[in-house]
Structures are given as structure tokens and as C-alpha cells.
Amino acid sequence: MEPEVVNSEMLLPPVLPFKRVQMSDKYPKGHARGRHWKHLKQILQAENYASYPADEPNYLNIETPPSIYPSKKFCDITGYEALYIDPRTNLRYANPDVFKRIRMLPDDHVQRYLALRNAAVVLK
């Protein structure tokens, strides 16, 4: 190791005195471990919240419901209030100038703009 790296103390030492089980013992080198963790979705599924009383707060039921107000539409490009929707790309736009720009946008940009508000075409 270079002295610079050693001096900066940036690396985590492989063996730490205060640990009962060292990292190398827990996850031995060369052993394929596979995936030993669950995503949040799987964790929540395993929690089985349905079996508990409904009024007990849990990770899922404390989520905020959707807004009671109708959502405002904003231009995807400029952010101004959008009065129109381009039927070809489904992008919202504020004025004819933006429309011209939309029509000149490459398709991947259109999809990225749509993805920003979770409206992109997802192929499954």
C-alpha cells in the first residue's frame, strides 16, 4: 500500500479488536454467498402486517394517502403550468414554442422526461 493511502486512514482495517466475529470469518473469502438480504418490499411482505390489528401503526399503514386536491399539470420541459398535452409523446407543454422543441426531441429524451414523473413506457 502506498504511504499516502496508509496515512489517510481511509481503509477499514480487516481485523478489528473489538469484534467478536470478524468480517472475514462471517463472510469467508472465495465462498459464493448469493443474495443474503431482502429488499424492503420483501421485508414488508414477510412482516405479515395483515395478521395484526388494523389500528396498530406499522410501516405500511402510516403512509400518507394521495392528496385530496386534483394534481396540477406542469410542463415537462419548462416547468410552467401546462395547458396542453402532445398526443404523440404524451409530454405536457406550456406553449407552442415548447411544442416545437418537444417535436424535435429524440425519443430517449422524451422517455426520460416521462420517467421523471413516472409516466414512461415500461417494457416488461
Binding site: T64, S67, S71, R117
Partner: peptide, 18 residues
């Protein structure tokens, strides 16, 4: 307005009401 990024939940001010 979380709706702007496609999250269908109420924003900070409405959360207080909720």
C-alpha cells in the same frame, strides 16, 4: 407536490392535516 415526480401522496402541508 410529490405528484410532480409521480409519487401519488400528499405533500408536507397536507401531511399535517392528515
Amino acid at each position: 407536490q410529490p405528484n410532480m415526480v409521480g409519487v401519488d401522496q400528499a405533500g408536507l402541508d397536507e401531511m399535517v392535516g392528515v
